[in-house]
Design a binder for these strands. Sequence first.
DNA 1: TTGACTTATATGTCTAGACATATAATCGTA
DNA 2: TACGATTATATGTCTAGACATATAAGTCAA
Lengths: 242, 242
Amino acid sequence: MSLATDASDKPTLYKRIRADIEKRILTGEWPPGHRIPFEHELVARYGCSRMTVNKALSELAQADLIERRRRAGSFVRRPQHQSAVLKIADIRAEITALGRGYGYELISRKLRAATAADRERLGIKKAGKVVAICCRHSADNVPFAVEDRLIDLSSVPSAATADFSREPPGSWLLHHVPWTEAEHTISAIVADDRTAAALDIAVGAPCLVIDRYTWRSARTITAVRLLYPGDSHRLVARFKGG
Amino acid sequence: MSLATDASDKPTLYKRIRADIEKRILTGEWPPGHRIPFEHELVARYGCSRMTVNKALSELAQADLIERRRRAGSFVRRPQHQSAVLKIADIRAEITALGRGYGYELISRKLRAATAADRERLGIKKAGKVVAICCRHSADNVPFAVEDRLIDLSSVPSAATADFSREPPGSWLLHHVPWTEAEHTISAIVADDRTAAALDIAVGAPCLVIDRYTWRSARTITAVRLLYPGDSHRLVARFKGG
DNA sequence: TTGACTTATATGTCTAGACATATAATCGTA
DNA sequence: TACGATTATATGTCTAGACATATAAGTCAA
């Protein structure tokens, strides 16, 4: 998410070249398929060495804004409408970023041998221990989301002794577990009795559901289901053609 | 030392350096916060010039895998909170990809001067004409989603004469409008009478809502609201660190 | 017309330097 | 001890070249 045309920092030459081209692409002046000037033409125009131009173009290519073809030149890529970047922030960070007071409440925490249901949810086969956590996040004392999480202790042994009564498990994991892969499934349900009570909404009110499975090198770390009041919470996925 | 994961294509040196580092990060060998070797150390290890090492590190920085700090060195970044790639395919393509029969039905199409509500929805101030479209997508003759769309004709004049009785507006726009930015907002509602009838579900059943605003260079092109039956449709967002 | 061969050329990668600049560390002083 | 000035150093940017390589385009023969 990097190439914003930042006017704040002093622009170096290659950044200016990159920004110039980016602007022409984004405004539609150079539509998809358009051949952008050859490196040697840009060298002449900006009066710099080829490496400088090359760096600008390489970054645009890495960002999928242009496509470079040997002997043929560099071309503006077609927008790829089928993907968008969905930012799902850590809930505490999300609420804090909104300038609202973050509240956290641990509802239950159980350490147990994985049941058949646990194993299925985590996609693991061997027996082992898990931590099951249920908690609630609130913003300015209004329920924001309820979280139902399972952590595989064989993947994250230190979660057994972590103090989740103060720190939300999501934040803790973010700081204790290195790079991961994850899959999110987003759906909608209507609130049942228990959910309605936890979120302080009416039974039958819509809820947004995010199921997230996180793993590292083919090993499931945690499975979590987040329930948000559907009419008040919104997930925003920003997309920039590419 | 490092084994090439793919022996098929000949890896260049800077790509090998980048891959070596990336691997150590992804496996957790170099956890978040870990300082990776200085450029001059990598220069010594790989026996190349500093520019070659610099190119590898710059790309890793552009991909947000590492953070570079002057005088201090380069450090492994924390996983990007939870940014995920959300695949929102063109609905026709999505249904076809599932091997199901795609059905499309134009419910209404109106060309009108933008009302105050239209202008607010599109975020435009000046008066102008818009096309309002309501349509339904189905898979194997089962309602899949209803679409409620507004297109700003001052941005896309050709939409006035496009034939939306055969081709869904989403597909049409994809092929006729160049580079865009978009923002998706995902929420949940319960079906009202009209929605329930259109989707052939019960009143009060949960629905997943996607509101998408598409613009080009600060100019809104189209605003669309898609309603899916919440218990049958799911959005999947896959995420991979880096 | 078609296929095989040749050539021209734009990009891909790399070098061995250079100076700029932000800042972590150190040192000196109040 | 606290704070301001100095220094050392890693990264940031850039140059003027070099050779490699994929491939569009042209050439020629069957």
